[in-house]
Write a protein that binds this DNA or RNA. Structure first.
Lengths: 103, 103
DNA sequence: GATGTAATTGGCTATTTTGCCAAATAAGAA
DNA sequence: TTCTTATTTGGCAAAATAGCCAATTACATC
């Protein structure tokens, strides 16, 4: 595996890593419905606002969401909706695993 | 976020987490071409065989690959090829980020 | 300017992940 | 049985991640 190839896998891994957390998957799912401010998301998640803010910054850093400050609030929205396709595949993997367990 | 919903996001996160590593993404990519034994994959990755074996077991645990022991060798293959769609989306995210940087 | 609200950042500890080596297991060959 | 090869497992130290609290920043209103 050469340098260039490794770099590409590292980039992909960075995006997947940003998604690979239950809270962040929830945030993505919620943002798929429309933009939300940090305070609203915090209420839904039920964690400290600093924790939610950090999760959002991880998603932003990865290029998955974008933010827009308006007044006191910061509104986040989904920038690359194709990540929602991941959910479909995850369900496929889980369904297939469930079937195998019963055989 | 209730218990049931949380459980679903945790399941999805487990699958994404299994994928979120450069070496494991390479392994998935390589297995997409056909089954491979651990020894061949180890040669391509250039890490200790125990490291590669552990990466494969992470993927197997997540339901992404399956193994088949034949004689001395263990052959791994891709069980849920839909994970390859992730790559497409990752490229989209990266391309979009690259564009934004230039604006 | 002073106050209040929304959000981010720094710092800390606890937990998880990674990758190597050494040891154990499994299966074919001598 | 003994030897060799392929793979897995256990154990360890280093690195990365998570989540809380406290402090800071940003902005609006008084």
């Amino acid at each position: 595996m050469n340098q260039e190839l490794l770099a590409r896998y590292e980039s992909r891994a960075a995006i997947l890593k940003a998604l690979a957390h239950p809270t962040r998957l929830f945030l993505v799912d919620e943002l798929a419905r429309g933009e939300r401010c940090v305070c609203d998301l915090t209420g839904m998640v039920g964690a400290d606002i600093s924790t939610v803010s950090k999760h959002l910054s991880v998603l932003k850093q990865a290029g998955i969401v974008e933010d827009d400050k308006r007044g006191l609030q910061v509104f986040y929205s989904l920038r690359t909706p194709c990540v929602l396709n991941f959910f479909t595949c995850c369900e496929t993997v889980m369904r297939k695993s469930a079937v195998d367990v019963n055989n």
